[in-house]
Design a binder for these strands. Structure first.
Lengths: 243, 243
DNA sequence: TAGTGGTCTAGACCACAAG
DNA sequence: TTGTGGTCTAGACCACTAG
């Protein structure tokens, strides 16, 4: 029995959905582990199995859970380390994905630019952790990245040596700061390379670059990370199917 | 009852889905009109209402149908005249959408470039209808477009005066050539403007432009139209949510 | 008021995975 | 063999739309 908070106005299957969502976001049910079986949930919530299935359906559809026939239903581990990265042409065309290498150039406490400050809901002039890094595929520089992190959330990161940080930041955030990225918005624009970007990417100043601005959120929708990535426009290719 | 072609290996709800898809693509059920009620379909196909609902669910999810409580379930009229266009910043930020004006510069029978020829499954050197046009928002040029159409499908279009073609091509294709666009793939890349593009868009040669290449298909997956649109990179902005 | 889709129930049998 | 999710049935009542 078991509705912690139920909004009577909502359909039953939506209420169940909210309950499950709560379990995932609070970490009661962990990524890559099975949630209770449908029969179990039926008992716990006192609703029919069809209702449980419909609730789980919506979460599977949203990508938060995945089902495996005969084994169970599992919490998906979110992974945004890939995302728009796959649209740079150094990636193999067969759909497989190479994890890009990474070199951190800077880790410092600085005043973030206005966009970052606004995105992260910081006070004016409030300091944030600034990471600059380069990302490589097969030894070739593909992206420059500027990353801004709220100091309160990432206090543990201040004293860590840059070399201890691996290629993928999100698993690192989770392990050292207890922060799990659950969703993000990305905005793609195009600009001309300034001197710094050009020399980092080994292109000419003024050459067009694709700019990917990402704001990543936790399960509770608080902004966790603001990131701007830049790559040469030559290698950029984004494909979409419309139905 | 009523299965025209049934693939016994598929689940019932998938078979029903295929049947409905067939009705839509053959034009038996027309856009913006209601399909039979769930009770009716239950009788026609001799399956339970839950199965009908599941089949319809998948089609609603794919955007081919939409439901309206108390009224019925309807065939969606596809509309790709918008799509990536909405990502140019001249569009109002409030989510509303202005239909761009359009000026046709050229209509001619020509040998298409290799990409167009391949995309449309044409023989080498086979002629196709070439349209060139400019598209405006609030009187400002936003896009140049090169459109290639297979002559066999668009025979009716050859003798039509350019001025009779309105701002939106897809409704025109449907009315005059009986061709309904059902899906499309779009690929976004970035290049530097050549002289022609630059003068059309009123930018400098070499200035970066966003290139949107679209291949549009009918319900039977035959390619109908190949289109390349170019707009100044300054005004381009594409946003995406990841969950 | 009649007809539609929206929600919900309480079962059933099947296909698949794992021990 | 046991337990899981995948499919399917045959109803029920509700909320909304339109005449």
């Amino acid at each position: 029995m078991a509705f912690i908070k139920r909004d009577e106005r909502l359909p039953l299957y939506r209420q169940v959905r909210e309950e499950i969502l709560e379990k995932i976001s609070r970490g009661t049910w962990l990524p890559d582990t099975a949630i209770p079986t449908e029969a179990e949930l039926t008992k716990q919530y006192g609703v029919a199995i069809g209702t449980i299935r419909k609730a789980v359906d919506t979460l599977v559809n949203d990508g938060l859970l995945y089902r495996s026939q005969g084994r169970g239903t599992f919490v998906r581990r979110p992974d945004f380390n890939t995302s728009l990265f796959r649209f740079f042409r150094q990636q193999p065309a067969d759909g497989s994905f190479i994890v890009p290498e990474s070199l951190i150039l800077l880790k410092a406490l600085q005043v973030p630019p206005a966009e970052a400050s606004t995105a992260l809901n910081l006070q004016a002039n409030q300091l944030a952790i600034h990471l600059k890094r380069l990302r490589f595929l097969k030894g070739v520089v593909v992206l420059t990245e500027d990353i801004w992190l709220p100091e309160m959330l990432f206090a543990n990161l201040v004293d860590i040596d840059s070399n201890e940080i691996g290629s993928l930041l999100y698993p690192f955030y989770e392990k050292h700061c207890g922060l799990l990225v659950a969703s993000a918005t990305e905005t793609l624009t195009i600009e001309c390379a300034d001197d710094d970007t050009a020399s980092a990417l080994k292109i000419e100043t003024g050459h067009p670059v694709a700019v990917i601005e990402r704001l990543a959120f936790g399960f509770d929708k608080t902004p966790i990370e603001y990131r701007v990535s830049r790559g040469s426009a030559d290698t950029f290719r984004y494909q979409i199917e419309i139905n």
